[in-house]
Nucleic acid binder design. Structure first.
Length: 453
RNA sequence: GCGGAUAUGGUGAAGUGGUUAUCACGGCAGUUUGUGGAUCUGCAAUCAUGGGUUCAAUUCCCGUUAUCCGCCCCA
């Protein structure tokens, strides 16, 4: 590598020379954090399976149009947060910034409208947004999301909100959040409402922030949740969306609230809640962090009746939500919640001499096949080093096989907690250990039998 | 995209305009070759990076990059 290259890149982008570090806004997920990831995935999968959802994974990148059309041209996500690049033939591709657009694309592409309706899907996937990193906001982040397509009923929305709520409960953090609820009506009533807003703001433009002035034309709904002081005051006095809803949406919304009451889920009606993605209709909701008072959502979702059609499919009602895995973890840690994990080992196998090593390999294999979590020090190292390593791993049992044991056909089983040890015949080692560990503690998870034919 | 703070071994922290940069935890190795968790010994940092001020900078100033926080937006 020439000096020229090093200095040029170094100056513009920081350490692009060894040792490397992660790009801005992305993180390694280390084993300690995977304990949380694994646990949350289990909870999510379990809740989804109970409710008849099946998992889908859409590609990490799609044609850019999938998102510009699906998410909406005027949204912040599309306008300034997408990772867009060209492939070798000049096609524009984009790393998925959210999960719904790709899922809807898949729904249409695979003819899911002919599956039994509604189609219920969930995903646990990384997403990408080019945004300034901050607490709970990363350029690559994981979302757990669900979508229900092909049927429209307030009961469905209620179920979905319940699913989100129970997931938060399962993770021990539901009490930290408040459900914010609103309805933005049908496409038609929303357009009427947007016209009402434009009329309301007519002549008041000079009091708006610069951004809101441009929103006025493209997406006046967003004026309602602007944090700018003056904009907020005007928004307070703006016409309430509830009053301009069409009758069907009104009925839908009041039914939903009834169902939520029935389920004992509390919510705050928030007529200024609008979502940053264009595809929503009727129900929109977010779970907001209580302590911040501000809008820091751990989960957001809503009803989107027009999207499938917009993306070239048959008119299909749908509803979904997504929650941020990193934010879930951050909140669990904030609550000092720890998560059970099964990474602890049972047995360490120490060996001395080449002959002993030969005996160790089959033994380790047999132990593992029986569900005994086992590691062995097959590299060089004195007895002391190996036992010390066993101690570092905090295993309760160590098997020691040296020259003497090989000759006698035995092995030493050492109790690492008490410091006692016994010599047993080589063929009894596995059975003895299983008894010491206890069958119920073995790691014998089975993925299920394979089926043939 | 806009503002603020920070940047010292793997981690967390001290510290100084000038000879070997301190401490804790962790890591590795060793304490004479078959046994751990204690003690002891040793090893590991061009003090983010580029430039400037100065006889001299890790320490002062500026740029860059990164991290953290707020705004914006969202998950």
């Amino acid at each position: 590598m020439s000096d020229e290259v090093i200095s040029a890149t170094d100056k513009e982008f920081g350490p692009l020379v060894p040792p490397y570090q992660t790009a801005k806004g992305v993180h390694d997920i280390l084993p300690a954090d995977h304990e949380y990831f694994t646990y949350i995935k289990k909870v999510a999968r379990h809740r989804c399976r109970q409710a008849g959802f099946r998992r889908i994974t859409t590609p990490t990148f799609e044609f850019t149009d999938v998102f510009t059309r699906g998410v909406g041209e005027t949204t912040d996500i599309v306008q300034k947060e997408m990772y867009t690049f060209q492939d070798r033939k000049g096609r524009s591709l984009t790393l998925k910034p959210e999960g719904t657009a790709g899922t809807v694309r898949a729904f249409i592409e695979h003819g899911m409208s002919s599956w039994p309706q509604p189609v219920q899907l969930f995903y646990i996937e990384p997403h990408f947004r080019y945004d300034r990193p901050q607490k709970g906001r990363y350029r690559q982040f994981w979302q757990f999301g669900v979508e229900v397509l092909g049927e429209s009923d307030p009961g469905l929305d209620a179920q979905l909100i319940l699913l989100a709520y129970q997931t938060l409960q399962d993770l021990g953090i539901a009490h930290l959040f408040t459900l914010q609820l609103n309805s933005i009506g049908s496409k038609e009533s929303r357009e009427n409402y947007m016209q009402m807003l434009r009329d309301y703001y007519f002549g008041k433009e000079r009091n708006l922030c610069e951004e809101c002035r441009s929103r006025l034309e493209k997406n006046p709904l967003r004026l309602l949740d602007c944090k700018n002081e003056d904009c907020a005051i005007l928004a307070q006095l703006a016409p309430n969306i509830m009053e301009s809803l069409d009758d069907e949406s009104k009925q839908f919304h009041s039914d939903l609230k009834e169902f939520l009451d029935e389920l004992g889920i509390t919510y705050v009606e928030n007529p200024r809640l609008v979502r940053g993605l264009d595809y929503y209709t009727k129900t929109v909701f977010e779970f907001w962090d209580n302590s911040l008072g501000a809008q820091n959502a751990i989960c957001g979702g809503g009803h989107y009746d027009g999207l499938v059609e917009l993306m070239g499919g048959q008119p299909t009602p749908a509803v979904g939500f997504a929650m941020g895995m990193e934010r879930l973890i951050a909140n669990m840690k904030r609550e000092k919640i720890r998560v059970p994990n099964k990474d602890t080992l049972h047995v360490f196998v120490a060996q001395l001499s080449q002959e002993a090593k030969k005996k160790c390999l089959p033994l380790i294999r047999e132990l593992r096949d029986h569900g005994v979590k086992t590691v062995g020090a097959l590299g060089k190292g004195s007895m002391k080093t190996q036992i010390r390593l066993a101690d570092k791993f905090q295993v309760p049992w160590t098997v020691i096989i040296g020259i003497t044991e090989v000759r006698e056909g035995t092995a030493i089983i050492r109790n690492m907690l008490k410091g006692t040890q016994q010599t047993v015949a080589m063929e009894d080692v596995v059975a003895t250990l299983i008894e010491l560990i206890g069958e119920e503690n073995l790691d014998t998870y089975s993925p299920g039998e394979l089926l043939y034919g």
